[in-house]
Design a protein around this nucleic acid. Structure first.
Lengths: 342, 342
DNA sequence: CACCAGATAGACAACGTTGTCATTAATGAT
DNA sequence: ATCATTAATGACAACGTTGTCTATCTGGTG
């Protein structure tokens, strides 16, 4: 006969009452032993400990949390995609801070889908997380207002959120983008293209803004074909590049709006065997080891995550001060690709 | 006067009883409305809904879960480091499966520290997660046995765990490593170095084993200096490379045991301006765009995560069959760096 | 008009813990 | 030996839900 059910049925977990019955004491005495409270004779405690081991008892923290009513020692992190290196670094930093505060961390990816984000956020609120760190999608976040009012602390990171008065950690998107473009202008480039993510994403819009500002200040009119905003899929990028690189006014340099886009652009440029000057927003691993090392405007995702988490815990611990908006600087890392003269 | 406390004190959240009082009904009626149970007159339901909105009520899922006693619809994922691209991809895949099963996901990084892993795992068990997906550190996992016996499903991924009969998803570490080395042997290399992670990590040991096996089969004796196992920090890697690349029997090719090591090696080789043939274990972004595109033995982290999560949910949903060990194949992706003749 | 079925609603226990308080046993002082 | 004092322990309510059971109110039927 084939191998049959060998593992035990998921027996209900033992409770302090089960332990008490085995040890022959009142259940409150078990609770005292479990929590190291005083007032239990060593002999009794020993008997209880034996029963605990025998039954494999572990305190149900859900029940404890319900009874105690204060904190759940858990927070939630909702971002676009945990597998994006930018967010995974941010995520790790949040985790470290949570750990330092004795909190567990729920993680969820919104996949840039507002209803999915909402569903996640509300599920976490229903679980009574102490706080939420959110990379908000573009949609309205009014749904969070009652939760905030009810005492769930919220911090947004990477993007602000309209109509909700919460702490926010951003990077200097427009400024960083401007810095990158100005770097290209200094090398003599005048026809500079811009490829960014969909314009309804806050960071994408801000960075585009920085590009346009720098170009305007340099009195470089921007042709329509020089700007391409959209998700960083290869087909889309290829078409945009072809448009930019041909015609009467081909661009001689490119500014890319985020790490995903930069990588897609590099891949397409390699395929097209074209090598315009290039500056990317966001650093990425190996940027320095490519045949032409890539100049980038770097953010510090870990620092952003850490800052957001610390802000969150300050709130959780009772800070009721005015909400803050922290803007973190970017850093230009010249590596070669942006230093090619026009 | 300076701006003072403007946000509301974290008032206790309203409960169904509060709602009931406002709506002037019994609290059970509120529960019925909240859960869409039948048997409430539309007029009453309307009154209740109004009270719910007015108070900003949201059902406390902790209490519900406690009362219902079955599942908590949450699982835990413990891995070495969420910010490692390999694990962050795995993580995302787990998340998708969890979402499909209506489960929330706790994430935690063990940082390769056994006590930290243990602490995390037990905290999650105390929260009564339905299951745990673990990338186990090297230490003993006996502590998990009572939890498994008590009904918490556990699946390990990337590495097996001794002394615990649970489902496991691995990749073909030794086979993949062997494939990589054989590829180098076919190009005529005989003096091949190996750089891997600390040998007490399962995957590192297995891959080293694959290397030694391939070398032995090819009758290539392995010099002591050709093998370096340890954390992928630059100093350590540099010393190892210097040892391998000089002397009477310098290596002409390298096999790297994981993505972190490969990247560190590439960086050091660039600094040393040496370009031995190279094959890496694990694919990584931009491997194809480096000046010499890097040949790798690729795993599929997302597939591993998905498989592990599906296995876990099968258990959670009641599967009591014998525990499984699934080994996923690796794929050699020749890109250039491994094809340089000796 | 009396009666019953079904619809609507509420009372109350239970989930596994912690906090409060009462009870009992042990100890020391008189 | 008696009483006060402290140590050890247990009984019980409460946390915010859901499930079970019972009570009330309708309206329709004979």
């Amino acid at each position: 006969m084939p191998d049959e059910a060998k593992r035990p049925a998921a027996t209900a977990r033992p409770t302090i009452k089960d332990v008490a019955a085995v040890a022959g004491v009142g259940f409150k005495t078990v609770a005292r032993v479990v929590n190291g409270e005083p007032g239990v004779k060593e002999a009794t405690a020993e008997r209880v400990r034996k029963a605990i081991d025998q039954l494999g008892f572990r305190r149900n923290d859900g029940a404890r949390l319900l009874r105690e009513g204060r904190r759940t020692s858990s927070i939630g992190l909702i971002l676009e995609d945990v597998s994006d290196p930018f967010y995974s670094q941010l995520s790790r930093a949040v985790e470290e801070v949570a750990r330092a505060h004795g909190s567990l961390l729920f993680t969820g990816s919104s996949a840039e889908d507002a209803s999915r984000e909402r569903e996640l956020a509300l599920a976490l609120c229903a679980r009574r997380v102490d706080g939420l760190i959110v990379v908000p999608t573009a949609a309205d976040h009014g749904y969070l207002a009652p939760e905030v009012a009810a005492g769930t602390s919220v911090v947004t990171v990477d993007r602000p959120v309209a109509g909700l008065d919460v702490d926010t950690v951003l990077c200097d998107n427009a400024g960083g983008s401007r810095t990158g473009v100005e770097h290209l202008l200094r090398q003599g480039h005048r026809r500079i293209g811009y490829l960014g993510d969909s314009e309804n994403i806050f960071t994408a819009a801000e960075r585009l803004h920085g590009y346009r500002g720098a170009m305007a200040d340099a009195r470089c009119p921007v042709q329509d074909t020089w700007v391409s905003m959209g998700p960083p899929d290869l087909v889309h990028i290829r078409l945009a590049l072809e448009r930019m690189l041909v015609g009467r006014w081909p661009v001689t340099a490119l500014m890319c709006g985020n790490n995903r886009t930069t990588v897609a652009v590099l891949r397409e440029l390699a395929a097209l065997d074209r090598h315009p000057a290039l500056v990317g927003f966001d650093d990425f691993e190996l940027a320095d080891l490519l045949s032409v090392p890539v100049t980038v405007v770097a953010q510090d995702p870990a620092q952003m995550g850490r800052t957001a988490a610390e802000l969150l815990f300050r709130r959780i611990e009772g800070d009721r001060g005015q909400s803050q908006r922290i803007t973190m600087p970017t850093r230009l890392l010249p590596r070669g690709s942006g230093e090619q003269p026009a």
